[in-house]
Design a binder for these strands. Sequence first.
DNA 1: CACGCTCTCACTGCT
DNA 2: TGAGAGCGTG
Length: 766
Amino acid sequence: MIEQLNPAQRQAVTYPEQHVLVLAGAGSGKTRVLTTRIAWLIQQKGVSPYAFLAVTFTNKAAREMLARIEALLPIDTQGLWVGTFHGLCNRLLRYHHRDAGLPQGFQILDSADQLAAIRRLFKSLNYDESQFTPRDMQHYINSCKEQGLRADACPAQTKIEQHMREFYAQYQQQCEREGVVDFAELLLRAYELLQNNSILRQHYQERFKHLLVDEFQDTNPLQYAWLTLLAGENSSIFAVGDDDQSIYAFRGADVSNMYRFEQDYARDHVIRLEQNYRSSGHILDAANQLIAGNQTRLGKKLWTDAGQGEPISLQVLDTDQLEAQWVLDEIQKLLDAGTAAQEIAVLYRSNAQSRVIEHHLFTAGIPYRVYGGLRFFERQEIKHVLAYLRLLDNPDDDTSWLRVVNFPTRGIGARSLEQLGAQAQEHNSSLYRAVPYMTGRAGSNLAAFVQLLQDMRQAAQQQTLPELLQYVIRQSGLAEHYQKQKEGQERLENLQELVNAAAVFVQEEGLQNFAAGQIPDAPNIDDQGSLAAEIGAAPVTPMSPLGAFLTHASLEAGDTQAERGQQAIQLMTVHAAKGLEFDAVFLTGLEEGIFPHERSLDSLDDIEEERRLMYVAMTRARQKLFLTRAHTRMLHGQRRYYHNSRFIDELPAENMRKLAAQPGGFAAADSANWGQQLGPNMGSWQPKSGRRASAVYGGSLRTQAVTVNGKEFRIGMGVEHPRFGVGTILRVSGSGDDAQAEIQFQQAGKKNLALAIAKLDIIAGT
DNA sequence: CACGCTCTCACTGCT
DNA sequence: TGAGAGCGTG
């Protein structure tokens, strides 16, 4: 089992049973180490499978981990807790819902549901959106929870903070009333459950001798607290991560958890996995050099014994169009040379950049697959069906109620709902429970809807889950509605797919013989029986197939796209590429303001995160890495001009191959021969010094003044912008509608503005 | 209640 | 540029 491991991997796998931090570089075999550690402890040390809790961030990672453990061990892996933070917390809360103060069938809100709930509360509290929007509020609530803060513990120094905190409290009340929990709540509740209930805490602390965490750099403070709370006196945490690949600070991840863990738990117990099995030497050397530019890191240097391979190619193009064309040409060559399409990836910093590339691939007839976008359980037609189903389980779920009470339309308009809302408020009840107070036409329409739900609930008692779904799709009128709709065909197919998904689900969970609403006995679910006996906890609460399916739908939104195996070029953001690898990688849009993104330019922390992102991007490539940038690209419907990304300058010359510039594009049209100008060592790639890269704007395109709409803009002139304030023109270029100026604003920093569009006032006398 | 118009705004995205 | 939300009209 451990014979084929390298020394560092072996050390990690066989480390004494105590807290360890494993710094696992990109492509160093971290999943293998994690899974082998579990298998080794079970097999060689006789540790019971019950003593393990292994936690990941994504369902995909959890599935992969389980599959690999099963491949390593001939024995039964039942009892092993492997899952996502949210999945495991959900499990805890289902088992101990009473202790956690939750209703038995609590529903889970996904981000969209949460936002809808917040919007609804905005309306019912008559909040205007001038101070903060529902989106701001959602972000605020989640980040409070991710720091373990309930509303009463949130700061209230300023008026705004007081308002937000008050709203947070109201939102929480609404969730309690409706019996729903959002994602962050799953974690916070589970944490509080263990915190407040010493019997449960001790039970789990004694049970889980080994806590293993994947992607530790992505944990947020609450996850860290949950994990360290769960670890008892005799438990050990095996934390695997890479601080250089921490790219999710924007959603609450805090790399300093790694530094803290090292200090507080694993001092002198840090293992570095630095041998890389993925990329060639040139790529690794360049990536190492780049990431060394970050101040804050634990430090690590990847190496390979597989040879230098090919240097990294860098190509500079005039426009985003030409960049896409160049990428297309190179892809064509790779395909001709026999590279499999799915082994070629085109990466970009943000999704908007995919369009041009897609267009070129599409025109050339090359199959491609864009990652990201709508996932299966997030589609509106799917969410509609799920809303009906949720109401069967929990009619007090107002979010679901409002979603489908009038969809398809059944004569219950905004007016009726307003009245219903008022009744609900008055009787302090859910909308569902307020229906009997309604009279007249609205009352009877609502009563009919309640009857519809009642019929469905009845069906749930007799039919299997797939049968119930089919029934709900028909009886709700959704099937008919989409049949009539012009573009409803695809939606109908998705609904059928949902029925199939339910059939697969009950099969896999062994629930196929149960009616949808029936609660099966739970003889073989884990050790909960013994737990109940042991600590006198509330009786175990298994879920009905319906409840289980709804939970599944919330916690696992489904893949964005089907199998990766298809013969298609892979297009995705750098974030989405984390954890993946390809023979050939095109990293596009390497311009200052694109990558690093303009929103990150003023903060060192943000720039360091962008640098890690660049590091992640580069280390996706096995053999060939192509970097590209364009002088100008269309963004937000405007042509904008960009400098070289600082990250290009930070790469060592000896690992790079400078490609000759491509002729053509607007350079030719503008009669400025950019082709020559961008020859080797000029615009394309320059060693170290060329940070300012003035060559980009140099030569015949350099202009002293331009006239737009009768106003003359000169270099050095003072201008005022309604948002950015007062600034000085550093540079002008182009003409007519394309005329651009780079302006140094006193407050807002340097901006490139299109003069025909920007509302600039010239400050007289400058 | 549905449709179409205008306005605004824009990174990354798992659970 | 173009998606999504808000608003007014038939």
